[in-house]
Write a protein that binds this DNA or RNA. Structure first.
Lengths: 199, 199
DNA sequence: ATTAGTTTTCGACACGCTGTCAAGAAACCA
DNA sequence: TGGTTTCTTGACAGCGTGTCGAAAACTAAT
């Protein structure tokens, strides 16, 4: 059989970069094909559809990001861990020029109820999955912190609250683009959650 | 001059309903024209572009919604006011079948950095404007509550935190569609913010 | 070395969407 | 009634996704 003339992973990387910067609906396969030096038809042949290509590219990102979260939440006091987590989150939103925002949040709001019901659901699942996994990591950090007496409260509720704030930060980032504001909110949230200990 | 054969406001209402359900990029002017019983070209003649039509339709929604927020935040104890505010917010996200989500959050994430730089910026401003106005209303309620001894803390920071949570709720609604979860998070947030009083 | 078979690549096509434009239609005013 | 103005209509260009068949390129077998 004839070997493929392009590298799968390279294309996924290039594609996700475009998706991240311009959104799924905002990037065309022609864009990706041009950037990757590949014919558009070849992409369809190799990946099937734009959504399928996006899903593969997103999975790669999700894995990387989850690893980074795990690292951020892995050392130091609970406050340090949470600070590192928020820092990672905000830095991720603000990466790129101009800042690319949060691909997960964007995807979640961008898709939803368009018209194509089929693959949209797969994408939603992928986004929701990453959110769930990160929530679990935060919850674990809180539980461990509770054992060490750094936090007293319901880890589950607190973790969900923190995740909700990070999603909100992703939205505010798009609305105002004010990184200092985001960091203030993050610090305030940590105070609120940890302060609940010394009620 | 020849009078217009359709009612401006009717079209805006019909258009926003579609935009809300399917997103700006997900609805075509053909859809709106069909629903409104108007020719597509007439819409271009009357409004100029899809984005302009959306902006007009959104302004109408924003005004209505802002009024509802003002009402919700207007009576009772501070806790009651915040509860009513979150209730309004979540009910709004979950209205329609299937639930339509938050048009502001969706718009904020959907637009951003597509390719058309011109009108996207106007839309972003409109979205951000509504968020800012609501933040101010919440902050006012908190300040008033502080005077009455129902809250002690920085009203500005707390208001921003609450708004961030509502934006996060809009995202989680899309991710999980679990209304009970949203209400739990809202209740937890109120406890956290008001609980900070009795530190 | 030649040939058969398989996979990739390429180009043309159908279809939908946005936005433009010119020509037709309808109301109003003089 | 005639002219002007505005709205409506339909055709068009341009770009997007996705499909299809044919050509090209490589492997493997004879």
């Amino acid at each position: 059989m004839r070997p493929r003339e392009f590298n799968h992973d390279d294309v996924l990387r290039i594609a996700f970069d475009q998706f991240w910067r311009k959104g799924v609906r905002g990037t065309s396969l022609s864009d990706i094909a041009r950037d990757a030096g590949v014919q558009r038809g070849s992409l369809y042949n190799a990946f099937g559809s734009k959504e399928a290509l996006f899903l593969l590219a997103y999975e790669r990102y999700a894995g990387d990001y989850l690893g980074a979260v795990q690292t951020a939440l892995g050392t130091g006091t609970l406050r340090k861990r949470l600070t590192a987590f928020f820092d990672l989150t905000i830095t991720n939103f603000r990466s790129g020029t101009p800042p690319r925002g949060c691909p997960t949040t964007r995807g979640l709001m961008e898709l939803g109820s368009a018209q194509g019901e089929g693959l949209d659901e797969d994408a939603r699942r992928a986004f929701a999955d990453l959110v769930t996994r990160i929530t679990t990591l935060v919850e674990d950090a809180l539980s461990a912190g509770a054992k060490r007496g750094e936090f007293s409260g319901a880890s589950g509720a607190a973790a969900l609250h923190i995740i909700t704030v990070t999603r909100g930060l992703a939205v505010l980032e798009r609305a105002f683009g004010d990184e200092a504001q985001l960091r203030k909110i993050a610090a305030h949230t940590i105070d609120l959650v940890l302060g609940a200990t010394k009620r």
